[in-house]
């Protein structure tokens, strides 16, 4: 499955996405991504460490769901690990200044739980 999730003991929803987030890849996961990110019980960490390709359509899905969380009074952050390609795309487009991005999962979970 290109999208999986886990609700951690720390009450955080960790959504892990993998593969290509181009038009077909985003189309494959966007419904489940929206449903998982729509939780009002957990802050959300989106794990992009296994995303091999991030096109603007994938960024659109991230922004849409992060905004939806914000409007519910929730919080979403991104975890990229050492995925330099995805980190570069998020920085280049300025998305990292809108949705916080972390290379360390501990920092990501601490930030979203704060």
């Amino acid at each position: 499955m290109p999208i999986q999730y886990e609700d951690t003991n720390a009450n955080i929803r960790l959504i892990k996405i993998s593969g290509r987030l181009d038009i077909p890849g985003t189309g494959e996961i966007e419904g489940k991504f929206a449903a998982l990110a729509a939780t009002d019980k957990h802050p959300v960490v989106v794990d992009l460490t296994e995303v091999s390709f991030l096109a603007s359509i994938g960024i659109r899905a991230i922004i849409t769901n992060a905004k939806a969380q914000l409007q519910r009074g929730g919080k979403m952050v991104l975890f990229v690990g050492d995925n330099a390609g995805v980190a570069k795309t998020l920085q280049m487009t300025g998305i990292d200044s809108l949705v916080p991005m972390f290379g360390d999962i501990g920092e990501a979970t601490a930030a979203v739980a704060a």
């Binding site: 603007s56 960024i59 659109r60 922004i63 849409t64 992060a66 905004k67 914000l70 809108l98």
Partner: peptide
Amino acid sequence: TLADATPGGL
């Protein structure tokens, strides 16, 4: 800000 962001256009 995220609140001002409009998806798309990138």
